[in-house]
Structures are given as C-alpha cells and as structure tokens.
Amino acid sequence: MNTVTLSIGLREDVNRRALGAFEGKPQGARISFASTDLLWSTLTRKRWEILRAMRAQGALSIREVARRVGRDVKAVHGDVRALIAVGVIESAAGGGVIFPYDAVHVDFTLEASAA
C-alpha cells in the first residue's frame, strides 16, 4: 500500500531520515510539519474531505472535486492549491489533480507540557 505519513518533524528527525535516504534506506513517503498547529491549519476538515473524495479516483478536475464534496469551485481551488503546496496531492499530467497515495497516516504524539 502506498501510504503517505504526515508528521510533526523535529529538525533532527528530518535530518536523520535524509541521511538514511542518502544511505539507500527506504524512508517511505513522509511530509513533516514544524508543529501540530501548522499541520491542523493545513489539513482542515474541508481539505480532509477533499482527500477522501479523491482517493483511488485517478486524475480529477477541480470542478469534479468540488462537485464530489458539494462545495464552490473557487473555494475548493484554494484548498487544492494548499494541498499541492505541501505535497499531499499533485497536478496531473494533462490537467486536473491527483491524490497519488492509497492512504494517509497522521503521526504525532500529544505530551504533557512542563508547566
């Protein structure tokens, strides 16, 4: 299964994965965010609905994505651009957009703060 992992990545983790990749160790598809706030401001409920509508569908026009989620084309266009910017979806050859993964895994830990 082709899964992308969205995670909160400390600089050290990103560097460790990059070094592993340079050594030929498979790292899998991973998109790291600097904070949980950044992850959740990027992966909003409406954007998550877009991903759900696009999974296993091949290339779709933005108009078709908007129809599937029951939203305005202009609003969906903005959300699609944000998802493209972070690498979760891609522009498709010949037009439209594609969700190139079979699944999304979100990985982060909520820890108690030192108050």
Rank of each mutant, 00 (worst) to 15 (best):
S91P: 09
V88Y: 00
L110I: 09
S61K: 12
W48M: 13
V86C: 13
R11I: 11
L19Y: 08
R52H: 07
S41P: 01
F22N: 09
S7L: 09
R68A: 06
E64K: 13
A103D: 14
A93E: 14
A18W: 09
A53C: 05
L38C: 08
R55G: 04
A34W: 08
R45L: 14
S32Q: 14
V104L: 06
F33M: 07
I84L: 06
G96A: 11
S61Q: 12
R11H: 11
G94C: 11
T3C: 08
R55P: 02
R11M: 10
V80K: 00
A92S: 10
I31M: 06
R55C: 07
W48H: 13
R68Y: 02
L51M: 10
I89G: 01
I62P: 00
S61G: 12
H105C: 14
S35V: 00
P26Q: 07
F22A: 13
S41W: 08
G28K: 02
G58W: 02
P100L: 05
A75N: 13
A66H: 01
L6G: 03
A75T: 14
M54V: 07
R52E: 11
E90W: 04
E111A: 14
T5V: 06
T44A: 10
V69F: 02
E23D: 12
V14G: 05
F108I: 05
A82K: 08
E23L: 12
W48Y: 12
G58N: 02
V73C: 08
T44V: 08
D102N: 14
S32K: 08
G28L: 00
V86A: 07
V4W: 01
R68I: 00
A114Y: 09
A66P: 00
T44Y: 08
A56Q: 12
R68L: 07
T36N: 11
L19S: 10
G78F: 01
V76G: 04
I8T: 13
G70D: 03
E12G: 12
P100K: 04
H105T: 10
H77F: 13
A56P: 02
D72I: 02
E64P: 00
G94V: 07
D102C: 06
R71Q: 09
R16I: 04
H77M: 10
E111G: 15
P26K: 03
A29D: 05
R17H: 08
Q57P: 02
L83N: 01
L10W: 11
R45S: 15
D107A: 15
T36I: 12
T3N: 10
A112C: 13
M54F: 02
E12K: 12
V106E: 14
R52M: 12
R47H: 06
R16G: 08
V104D: 03
V14A: 07
V104R: 03
E12F: 07
G24M: 00
S113V: 14
T42C: 05
V86E: 04
E111F: 05
E12D: 12
R16S: 09
R45D: 15
F33I: 00
V65H: 03
H77W: 12
R45Q: 15
R45G: 15
G87K: 02
A56K: 11
A53G: 09
I8S: 07
I8E: 09
G94Y: 11
R63I: 05
A114M: 13
A18M: 13
